[in-house]
């Protein structure tokens, strides 16, 4: 539009007089308006702002050219770099995996004894195992394998199945009572059909077990031999690799006070250890097995 020459119509001029006031501090003119005492200066537009706008716009244009940016209806501009964040992420993930291949690859094999004795390798691997254990297992077994309410201790050297890394790896891979088809299975049956007095007697006996071996020939001992020994062993020491815990060493899962044992006998137990086959790689599982296997050695060393 053609610029008017009437001073009253110029931006910032007082509409009646065409005059602008001058602010004594800055020396700039005001726009001539007054909103209940508020005025504005007609300060020239700072060049810096224009430059900043141009600069950030340039940055944006370059980015739009390089990266996916503008939708075009049913498609979008892909950008010269042709990036896809999913592909990038998988690539980055593979790079990470490749970066630890030099030591990680050893753990895909199953020669656990050889791995265990390779101290250099284990030194590189153990921090990784520790973190894996903390993120995946510690919620149940405690950060140092000390167990939890309903979850077995892994650091005391007593095993329901076996302390042998191969067997541990199998436990981790398939779980116990998990929904994996190859899961280990271990169930403490419910003895709710048994007389209550008999159950109480058994409970008393089991609660006493850590204090010494079973007194033979007592009625409770007979009950134990007939009903329990098949899984927990003659004297309750477990170790039959059936998943039945030892009842003599005080390192039980659920507690060994009379009340808890009575509960266990009455209702049975069916603890679940999840399967990790779909979540962790074979190498990670084997590594964890070795880590778990040496947890008890570590805690023995601490105790000494």
């Amino acid at each position: 539009m053609p610029e008017s020459t009437d001073p009253r119509e110029l931006p910032g001029a007082d509409p009646h007089t065409g005059n602008r006031k001058v602010d004594p501090v800055t020396g700039y003119e005001t726009t001539g308006h007054d909103w209940g005492g508020i005025t504005e200066l007609n300060t020239a537009f700072p060049k810096l702002v224009i430059w900043a706008l141009v600069l950030t716009f340039l940055y944006s244009v370059i980015t739009w050219i390089l990266l996916p940016a503008w939708p075009t209806g049913r498609d979008y501009t892909r950008g010269l770099l042709g990036l896809d964040q999913g592909v990038e992420a998988v690539k980055g993930f593979r790079d990470l995996a490749a970066g630890r291949q030099d030591w990680m690859s050893h753990f895909t094999g199953e020669n656990f004894a050889a791995l265990q004795s390779d101290t250099g390798l284990m030194a590189a691997a153990l921090p990784a195992a520790e973190r894996l254990f903390a993120d995946n297992c510690a919620a149940c077994h405690g950060v140092s394998g000390q167990g939890g309410p309903g979850f077995p201790v892994l650091s005391d050297g007593y095993w329901m199945w076996s302390g042998d890394p191969e067997a541990i790896a199998e436990t981790i891979r398939f779980g116990i009572n998990s929904d994996h088809p190859d899961t280990r299975f271990a169930k403490m049956p419910a003895f709710d059909w048994m007389e209550r007095s008999d159950r109480s007697a058994l409970a008393q006996l089991v609660a006493d077990l850590p204090n010494g071996p079973v007194k033979r020939h007592s009625p409770a001992a007979a009950l134990f031999a007939n009903n329990c020994a098949s899984c927990h062993g003659e004297n309750g020491s477990g170790g039959l690799e059936t998943g039945a815990p030892s009842l003599t060493d005080g390192s039980v899962i659920y507690g060994q006070d009379e009340q808890t044992v009575l509960n266990t006998i009455t209702h049975g137990r069916h603890g679940v250890m999840p399967s990790w086959a779909d979540r962790l790689s074979d190498a990670q599982i084997n590594l964890l097995a070795l880590y778990v296997a040496q947890l008890s050695e570590l805690s023995n060393e601490v105790a000494q």
Partner: peptide
């Protein structure tokens, strides 16, 4: 980096950078 398409993220990023100018202009 979420499941939102990359192109929408790029727009969000670039406009955020340009947005700094009017924001600082107000503060200034």
């Amino acid at each position: 980096y979420t499941a939102l398409p990359y192109w929408a993220q790029t727009l969000g990023m670039t406009f955020s950078v340009m947005l700094l100018v009017p924001s600082w202009a107000s503060a200034g």
